[in-house]
Design a protein around this nucleic acid. Structure first.
Lengths: 221, 221, 221, 221
DNA sequence: GATGAATGAGGTTTCATTCAT
DNA sequence: TATGAATGAAACCTCATTCAT
């Protein structure tokens, strides 16, 4: 899963300009700059206020230039989102797969929680868009979301299945367990700031999440 | 006039028209109709495509009429969101507070999970907007989000604190536990459809969530 | 000149409501209140920003009420303007006619200048509208302007003609002299504030104007 | 690009487009065309009816184009007004400064009156707006008005001061004299048409104004 | 490759205005 | 008399988008 980068997704032609040509070195730079600015503005201005005009202006370019590389704002965001999803999906998957859930479940769970917190902290704006858009039925973003979370889910489900002593409930539905855990990790990470303000330190959150993960997977439920 | 209260939510001036006057019966109806349509379109069209024109058109009114009751689309959504938040926040709180977490923790946890699943299923579009907008720093929606989840969080934290045998971690930070549980319940509920497609039945999800909640609160972690 | 009040002008139907009926005591009060607010807003907000909505709101009434007494904002302003024009025109005329331009020209000129300064200071906003609207060809306001200045002009012209020793130029065209004097008096009065800021005290302005008027009329040019 | 300067007025950023860039030759032309049309419509339609839509339509452009060069109608008018103010202010100042008020006061006064009549005749609409807007406290137009009349006022004041034999009054307040003269010249010029209809020929007006100016300055008051 | 310039298109917003109550 | 309520109409203004250069 998620092995196929560069081939599958809608971002396969990411490097191409809108007219089909493959940009040269200078073009690549322009494209990259546009993406950077898009990411920045997404963080600064927010998704609801993101305009091509502003991206171009902040990149010191003409709007026209933007359209040489992307069909519209969404396409640009999607490139960012896809890139992020693939990379982060893989990273999370690795954390799970590489861990020893039998003997060092504690450490594994903590590392997983930590990875989530870290990734979500760094990519909040993107994640918000992915959530909204996929929720509203935008298939491109839904795919992106899957690309990010499926590896995690599958890996977690596998881990659950692997534990002989897993509790009844878990044994009956590894996918449910994996899904719930993923959701928990994702949402807590998405709102770490808010939760902190409410009186839950990041450390406590991490510990709590890790505890739940470990219990659920290691069957100590 | 102004006898017709009872429709309003928490926002004190919710029922006022934009010019400050309190609408009479007919006005209240119009306003309610607009809110209804807004909710419908939010579900149908999605937040990103929600236009005043469309709301008005679908309500068989002039755009101008919309502006007699709301400053803009966001204000209308906010009214819906606030109303929903208050009502649902209270309902969830009641579920937690009224339950017997000592002797019938199992039943309590199940009811809680169920309430979440139900509420989220019915209000997906609103919840998506609340999440996005509050995430992007829109204080009005952030407040709304708090109004929805704080009662839950507080009640859960109280429940955790009440359990003598609670595990170390939990005892050290009831807020973290409550926060994590809330996040889990919310996010799973938000994505029940997606999770189903991925192979996790709603029943299994409910059971899993309930299991985690019960364990965490009842201290059997 | 200006003998015909109440009969001629467009304000002849001023006391009537739009539907033709003559309002009772209560209606008169409402109408008067609307006019008052209109005058206030004209001073506060300025002509360019004057809206029926605002007049009504500031008078604590519905816009609909406004339309029971006036066809539109201009009509209301016109009522104010006409009233002002007739009253002030008469006052200025009296100052000129009652004066003794032969033996006490000095005193007469000073009184005239003073009357202008006073009237203009009190009615700046109205005067600005009269000037703009009449300048742009709005006949109703042009008539109003005449109602204000013609009496002055005629009286001044008569005064000029009456002076035996009048200079050549003046003798050739009393109307030109009267017109120029009127214009001077009006415009200086309209800009007394600005002129003060520029370093010309009101006293000096009055004296200067008086000097010019006296010289022109008394033939000491 | 930006070689084409020379069209601009006094406002340093006058030739910039709204987005901050300096338009090229083609853009300058478009901008100039819009200004031309604005001036025309100001004369034709009047200030109160001046709409962006109409300007654009009459210039055979899209409204959107208008907004590439001006923020709103006022900005466009202001450009015209500023340009006019600077040019005409200078012209009038020159007339005063270059004249010989000692030996050829008569000729000088006549030339000044004539310049006023001419300038005002050609720019009535603009002058009306400047007067109204500055009167209503619009600082941008007030500044514009100063730019037009201050040079005149200062020059006249200097001329007054320069005359040894100046009358008492004048000697006491050159600024008052200058201000009154300026006001007279301006207002008569603004209403030459109306005065003509009232029986004062332009020639007579000119002569009368000149007489007053000469007397006031040359001290023959 | 990049962009100056122009615009189609459409939502937003405001007002004046009307009518039934 | 007064006004709550609704709306037609139109201007405003912004954007995405497109070419010719």
């Amino acid at each position: 899963m998620s092995t196929a980068v560069g081939a599958g997704g809608s971002s396969g032609d990411g490097l191409r300009a809108v007219d089909g040509r493959i940009p040269g070195r200078r073009g690549q730079q322009t494209r990259a700059r546009l993406l950077d600015v898009t990411r920045d503005l997404l963080e600064t201005t927010g998704y609801r206020e993101l305009r091509v005009v502003d991206i171009a202006r902040m990149a010191d370019m003409s709007s026209a230039t933007f359209y040489q590389y992307f069909h519209d704002v969404h396409s640009a965001i999607l490139v960012l989102a896809d890139d992020f999803a693939v990379t982060s999906g893989a990273r999370l998957e690795a954390v799970i797969v590489d861990a020893d859930w039998t003997r060092r479940a504690d450490e594994a769970a903590n590392q997983l929680a930590d990875a989530f917190l870290d990734i979500w902290a760094r990519n909040q704006p993107l994640l918000r868009v992915i959530d909204l858009a996929s929720g509203e039925g935008d298939e491109r973003f839904a795919a992106c979301r899957r690309r990010l979370l499926n590896p995690v889910g599958e890996a977690l489900a596998a881990a659950v299945r692997a534990q002989v002593a897993a509790a009844e409930v878990a044994r009956r539905s590894p996918n449910a367990v994996a899904g719930v855990l993923t959701a928990m990790l994702a949402h807590v990470s998405a709102h770490q700031r808010g939760l902190e303000e409410w009186g839950a330190s990041v450390d406590a959150l991490r510990a709590t999440m890790a505890g739940i993960v470990r219990t659920a997977i290691a069957g100590e439920l």
